[in-house]
Design a protein around this nucleic acid. Structure first.
Length: 465
RNA sequence: GGUCCCAUCGUCUAGCCCGGUCAAGGACGUAGCCCUCUCAAGGCUAAAACACGGGUUCGAAUCCCGUUGGGACCGCCA
């Protein structure tokens, strides 16, 4: 039975990189019909917050990454770690270190200055007597030999044991450290595959020695490459939105984000667009690449537009509603005819890449009047076009059934009678009705805006001239 | 600085493990054309990559070594 976990530390919102790690674990679990465990690594109490825990959970839910067990919290499990740490101490596999953090920091600085590796010098390792001073517990790493990590993505990676330091497993305040908790938890939770970011590859040999010292079975490891910003440095706030929830707020669809993240570092031939079921069916570690990937916001935008096109209009309306309300184009308790809304959205969905854009485009369908862009006004509303607008207003007002078909007839009549190009008539009308030179087809727009608002807007512009 | 990882179009990648079918395929983006009432969407076309240097081999994007470049880690952070 495959058991994997996602173990974020709540020191920030769930970001793109973390989300992809979570996704790969989730896909692996679902593909193998295994279990996906959520564990909150909050042993750093000074930086962990409840808000971040909630925010991470909210982001996971939004992405649709459901977990089978947890969320477990390491702060609830302190006794367990402590017991294991003391077990190692008693067995002579760990030792008390009386060096203070200040002393260690000083020595690190000194070592750096001398160009030596900034590593703990193991000075307490052979201390025989027990002192009456605060101490941390350090793990005794083997001094020679080598450790091989058989990574499912990277292959065989070999480390010299002499390069691995005697890490602290229990701090002097009695709290355990990351590398220790991970081992204990992964064992206690029966984790079979540890799928995590490549930044943990160097931690792996340390953890392997702890597993061995504790007589625990070592899980399989898979270290997936990092996600980098456009400047090739690790993705961070400087590169714009990195929090998953920020993408939700910008109007991205969770399926699009999931699809995008899945294709970052993983591939299935030439296929680009996957349903969730396809992702689950096809996902495997063999096709996870080894190289870091740069976050390509343009491609995410494209995928999102593809997903918007795939989403039915009625569903899209539900999704866009919060954005409409936020922008003030719709009141919370306004009732909107769903058929009308579907028509409106159908006209716009393939020219919008996010829900936010869609909401914005719906502005001229929902409001009474629209503000006209100055440039558009200057170009299309002038002494030449006003008579034309008057004429068309008159003819439109006589249409009884205000449908695309009948509207088109009015436009074509005018064009034919006056020998004009359609654009010469359509553009000024478009500007008056939508406030901009860009919109869906003019007949479609007028039908959706409706006869009443169409005439109101036209007359207001004519009267103002 | 030490250790570890990585290297195909600007970007995500297929191909690499099992050398020849690769004068390197797809996608995003970019450019042009078609469609057209504007903008999209759609269709067609184009420019665009095997980091470099050595081997091995009849033959290398594919195997080996080195160089360069990038990344990660070296905490009583996770």
């Amino acid at each position: 039975m495959v058991r994997v976990r996602f173990a974020p530390s709540p020191t920030g919102h769930l970001h793109i990189g973390g989300a992809r790690t979570a996704l790969f674990n989730w896909l692996f679990a679902r593909h193998h019909n295994g279990k996906f465990v959520l564990r909150i690594e909050d042993t750093d109490r000074s930086r962990s917050t409840e808000e971040y825990i909630e925010s991470i959970i909210e982001a996971m839910k939004w992405l649709g990454l459901d977990w089978d067990e947890g969320p477990f919290r390491q702060t609830d499990r302190m006794e367990i770690y402590r017991n294991y740490a003391y077990k190692l101490l008693e067995e002579g596999k760990a030792y008390r270190c009386y060096c203070t953090p200040e002393e260690l920091e000083e020595r690190r600085q000194q070592a750096m200055k001398e160009g030596k590796p900034p590593r703990y010098d193991r000075r307490c390792r052979e201390l025989k007597e027990v002192l009456d001073k605060p101490f941390a517990i350090r793990f005794k790493m083997p001094l020679e030999g080598e450790t091989v990590v058989n990574d499912l993505v990277k292959g065989e990676v070999t480390f010299k044991n002499s390069e691995i330091e005697d890490l602290v497993i229990l701090r002097s305040d009695g709290t355990p450290t990351y590398n220790f908790c991970v081992v204990v938890d992964d064992f206690e939770m029966n984790i079979t595959h540890v799928i995590r970011g490549e930044d943990h590859l160097n931690n792996t040999p340390k953890q392997i020695h702890i597993y061995k010292a504790l007589g625990m079975k070592i899980p399989e490891f898979a270290h997936i490459p990092m996600i980098l910003g456009p400047d090739r440095s690790r993705l961070s706030k400087r590169h714009g939105a990195t929090s998953v929830l920020a993408y939700r707020d910008e109007g991205y669809l969770p399926d699009a984000v999931v699809n995008f993240l899945a294709r970052l570092g993983w591939s299935y031939g030439d296929k680009e667009i996957f349903t969730r079921d396809e992702l689950i069916e096809y996902f495997d570690l063999d096709h996870v690449g080894k190289a870091n990937a740069i976050f390509n916001a343009e491609k995410l935008l494209w995928l999102n537009s593809e997903y918007i096109k795939l989403t039915p209009e009625e569903k899209l309306f539900e999704l866009v509603k919060p954005f409409l309300i936020k922008e003030g184009y719709l009141m919370e308790n306004d009732s909107v005819d769903i058929e009308w809304a579907a028509k409106a959205i159908k006209s716009l969905k393939e020219r919008c890449r996010t829900l936010k854009e869609l909401a914005n485009a719906m502005r001229y369908y929902l409001l009474e009047y629209v503000e006209i862009e100055p440039k558009a006004k200057e170009k299309y509303i002038n002494s030449e076009t006003i008579p034309l607008l008057k004429e068309i207003t008159e003819r439109l007002s006589s249409i009884e059934d205000f449908t695309q078909h009948n509207i088109e007839k009015v436009f074509m009549d005018i064009v034919n009678e006056k020998g004009l190009k359609l654009g010469a008539v359509a553009q000024p009308v478009r500007v008056v009705i939508t406030g901009s030179t860009v919109s869906p087809g003019i007949y479609e727009v007028l039908e959706i805006v409706g006869k009443e608002k169409t005439l109101k807007r036209l007359r207001r512009v004519i009267d103002a001239s």
